[in-house]
């Protein structure tokens, strides 16, 4: 749950949006008009916050807020092992 909260916060900061505009199912590109520069900022902020690596190839799997949350969760799991 905290990861979702933090992901939403980073998207809010970069895109200048309010929390009610971002749901778990929200499509980052189609609904929020996120572009490559926005995405770079969001990923960098999450990398620094969770001390994980989110390489460019991860972008292929990320379309919605939920996708982004899942990628962060997986990277955190990998880190535990």
């Amino acid at each position: 749950m905290n990861i979702l909260k933090n992901v939403i916060k980073e998207i809010m900061d970069v895109m200048g949006l309010s929390p009610e505009e971002i749901q778990l199912s929200t499509h980052l590109y189609d609904e929020l008009d996120v572009d490559s520069l926005d995405m770079s900022q969001i990923l960098l902020a999450l990398e620094n916050q969770y001390k994980i690596d989110l390489p460019d190839e991860e972008l292929d799997h990320i379309e919605t807020v939920e996708d982004l949350v899942k990628v962060v969760e997986e990277k955190l799991k990998d880190k535990e092992y």
């Binding site: 520069l37 770079s40 900022q41 990923l43 960098l44 990398e47 620094n48």
Partner: peptide, 13 residues
């Protein structure tokens, strides 16, 4: 202060 990973992704543009 924090290292390379903390430079804003938008720094160049």
């Amino acid at each position: 202060k924090n290292g390379l990973n903390y430079v804003n992704a938008l720094f160049i543009p």
